[in-house]
């Protein structure tokens, strides 16, 4: 979601977020529990078609799916030797389809849309929790990931510039201190923008 969203106007981009979320969950459960290799390979073909329909950049999508291949590289041979190659292929297919579908969801849905969907889902519980606040919490968490990674990068750069090679502690301390300062500043900005309760 952080920079992974790829703008577009396809049917998949425009579909309601809750519907996408529901279909994603449904597909993952069905494929995860189906013992039939044909269904899994059919689902894989369907996912490819969905990617084509969404017209998301191939490279960015591949970068999201690639990490799971590393895991499969280890697990498939083990499972193949222990419980047979059909089971291993089935497991690999299920994982790939699930990760690809999740990637498609991420790449075609804005953070705002996801937040609104969460707020809708939480609406029945509105007596007990402030849905706006939960939404804000999630949004700020997402926003803070690049903020903190910038801080870590700057601390590393400062360390390199000074030519020192310290312990893990010499990185952790400035990162934590600066993150706390950034949190203070962000809090001040939230208050200034009217979120002062």
């Amino acid at each position: 979601m952080i920079g992974l969203y790829s703008p577009g106007t396809s049917l998949i981009h425009r579909a309601p977020t809750l519907l996408k979320l529901f279909l994603l969950s449904l597909c993952v459960v069905l494929i995860g529990s189906s013992p039939n290799p044909w269904i899994v390979s059919g689902a894989a073909a369907g996912v490819v078609l969905l990617f084509l329909a969404a017209r998301v950049p191939v490279r960015a999508a591949a970068a999201q799916i690639a990490p799971i291949l590393l895991i499969l590289l280890v697990t498939v041979p083990i499972q193949g030797l222990l419980s047979g190659w059909t089971v291993a292929a089935l497991m690999a297919g299920r994982l790939l389809v699930a990760v690809a579908l999740a990637t498609l969801f991420t790449m075609t849905t804005t953070v705002t849309a996801v937040l609104e969907a969460f707020q809708k889902l939480l609406r029945p519980f509105r007596r007990f929790i402030d849905t706006d606040r939960v939404g804000l919490l999630v949004a700020l968490t997402i926003r803070c990931i690049p903020l903190v990674s910038d801080i870590v990068r700057e601390v590393f750069e400062a360390r390199t510039a000074r030519g020192t090679r310290g312990s893990l502690l010499s990185i952790a301390v400035p990162v934590v201190v600066r993150s706390l300062y950034a949190a203070d500043a962000l809090g001040e900005a939230l208050v200034a923008r009217g979120l002062d309760d």
Partner: peptide, 23 residues
């Protein structure tokens, strides 16, 4: 008062609270 007075900070990174520009 905060509805009447908008505030711009030195470091915009601390002012941006949502992940995308439009949001």
């Amino acid at each position: 008062v905060r509805r009447k007075v908008g505030f711009i900070f030195t470091n915009p990174d601390n002012q941006i609270v949502m992940p995308t520009v439009q949001e």
